Simulated scan of single mutants.
Amino acid sequence: MAKFGKRTRAAREAFAGKEELSVEEAIALVKGNASAKFDETVEIALNLGVDPRHADQMVRGVVGLPNGTGKTVRVAVFARGPKADEATAAGADIVGAEDLMETIQSGKIEFDRCIATPDMMPIVGRLGKILGPRNLMPNPKVGTVTMDVKAAVEAAKGGEVQFKAEKAGVVHAGVGKASFDDAKLAENIRAFVDAVQKAKPTGAKGTYMKKIAISSTMGPGVSIDVASATGN
């Protein structure tokens, strides 16, 4: 039987028997047990009634969290000429074309978001097997294939979060830090849930949003009453 440390045991005891809490109650519980020596990320997981293997049940999108994520996002941009200059001026961390492709192919991926101008997609397309599994592939549906690289870079840096359903129909993301004010975390959580709700695919049948849970980086999770998060 696994032996847990003192902090883990205490957290498990605090969470025991608690489920389907309101957003505010869940935040208070998670924050109260986020005792790591660093500022833990508050993470959300939504179990959806979809099978992403079917094209008409895929859930993906992007949402700008009203209070940001608290995370420093490194942005890479595939662009040339004036658009490359525009990306650099907007604060992109890495800007390139074939040279950036070669860097990624060598296994060096030092960014959290990848943006590309449309003319760069023949180059970016060669990186599908590398960027795709990491959810880093630029996509026009979430605004990362665009000529407006300035707006895309600023959005990524300003707390925009991309989401995509995994094989089991689970969507997860970081929605802030444990140091955030409770009200700001609640606002971020509801904004994220609302975005996923609006991204409901045409092929979804039955209950769409089955379960919502939040946790801190090092802590256990607690389920949230869906109505509390959706306002329904």
Rank of each mutant, 00 (worst) to 15 (best):
A2T: 09
G5I: 06
K6N: 01
R7F: 01
R7K: 13
T8V: 10
A10P: 01
A11M: 13
A16R: 01
K18T: 06
K18P: 06
E19M: 06
S22T: 15
V23S: 02
V23L: 05
E24G: 00
E24L: 04
E25M: 03
L29H: 04
L29C: 08
V30Q: 05
K31S: 08
G32P: 02
A36P: 00
A36K: 11
K37F: 08
F38M: 07
E40C: 09
N47Y: 12
P52C: 04
H54Y: 14
G64T: 15
G64Q: 15
L65P: 02
P66W: 13
T69A: 12
K71C: 04
R74F: 14
R74P: 02
V75F: 03
V77W: 08
A79V: 08
R80V: 10
K83A: 10
A84M: 12
T88Y: 08
A90K: 07
G91R: 12
D93P: 08
D93K: 14
M101C: 13
E102C: 06
T103Q: 15
I104M: 13
Q105H: 12
G107N: 12
G107P: 09
E110R: 14
R113M: 13
C114G: 06
I115G: 09
I115W: 11
A116R: 10
M120S: 10
G125P: 02
G125W: 07
L131D: 05
L131W: 12
P133I: 14
R134F: 03
N135M: 11
P138C: 13
V142S: 03
V142P: 00
G143W: 12
M147V: 13
V153Y: 03
E154F: 11
E154G: 07
F163V: 02
A168F: 09
A168C: 05
G169W: 07
G169A: 10
V170G: 00
V170L: 13
V171Y: 03
V171G: 01
H172T: 03
A173E: 04
A178I: 00
A178L: 00
S179Q: 02
F180V: 01
F180W: 04
A183V: 04
A183D: 14
L185P: 00
L185Q: 02
I189H: 01
F192K: 02
F192E: 05
V196K: 07
Q197A: 14
Q197E: 11
K198F: 12
K198M: 09
K198C: 07
K198D: 13
G203H: 01
G203S: 07
T207W: 05
M209C: 03
I212K: 00
I212W: 00
A213C: 01
I214R: 04
S215G: 01
S215I: 03
S215Y: 01
V222E: 04
V222T: 10
D225S: 00
V226T: 14
V226L: 10
S228L: 07
A229N: 05
G231E: 05
